[in-house]
């Protein structure tokens, strides 16, 4: 894990890809994409190993157990689509309900899951906590303190003939973008035009994984 200051808040980037805000006892995860394999099967007939919900929730549960947050915020695209959300198997729904019990749980809407589900918790388009605003997709015109997901950023580090690519957090003075937390998710390179436009020249990347190293945001 790595602590960093962002718009006056002391935050911690966890190796798992979750964001922790100890002062608010808040855990934030983005882009869980639950129900992805079900959606792919429904849409294209492809039958991927149907274990991504189990894997994603196992990791989420570990983070919740380790940090015991009072508040959990899922930053959008929590479900691969609304049908996938409705089609979750009973064990998965029960598991989620168990995780939600006793905490304030917020679902931010994403482009994949733009409406509420019958699961508990609060459904919001965006939410402000202290100086920070949480929304799914970064708003180009946003003022400072915006925390978002959506892009699944990843970054590469080259060293002695080896290249290590990992999902990453990106942040600058005004904006923070979280990596995707879901198991079946790909990534968008930090060098892509969209991310380059969003982030200021002095932006940094924190790579997920055991060491959570921080580097200047790779630009090429």
């Amino acid at each position: 894990m790595r602590s960093f200051g962002f718009c006056g808040a002391e935050l911690i980037a966890l190796g798992s890809g979750a964001l922790l805000w100890p002062e608010q006892s808040l855990l934030v995860v983005s882009d869980l994409h639950l129900g992805k394999s079900e959606r792919i099967a429904r849409r294209s007939g492809q039958m991927l190993p149907p274990y991504e919900n189990t894997e994603t929730l196992t990791r989420l549960e570990a983070d919740i157990d380790a940090h015991a947050p009072s508040n959990v915020l899922c930053l959008g695209d929590s479900f691969d689509d609304l049908n996938a959300g409705h089609a979750l198997s009973d064990p998965v729904t029960e598991w989620l309900t168990r995780l939600m019990a006793g905490r304030v749980w917020t679902w931010i809407e994403g482009n994949h899951d733009p409406g509420p589900l019958e699961l508990g918790g609060t459904h919001l388009a965006q939410q402000s906590v202290g100086a920070l605003t949480f929304r799914h997709i970064a708003d180009l015109d946003a003022c400072t303190g915006e925390v978002s997901g959506h892009y699944h950023p990843k970054a590469s580090l080259h060293s002695r003939g080896r290249t290590v690519t990992r999902p990453c957090f990106l942040y600058d003075n005004t904006r923070l973008i979280l990596p995707a937390y879901g198991t079946y998710t790909g990534g968008l390179r930090s060098s892509s035009a969209q991310l380059q436009t969003l982030m200021q020249p002095d932006a940094r990347a924190i790579l997920t994984g055991a060491s959570t190293v921080e580097i200047p945001m790779p630009r090429v």
Partner: peptide
Amino acid sequence: LIDRMTRGQRKSGKQATFSSDILYDTLRKY
């Protein structure tokens, strides 16, 4: 199990596509 990818598909939709390594790891585990 997974589709062959054409050049065009690799160019676009990077967020949506994920590595087959993840499928391998998941299968091995579960």
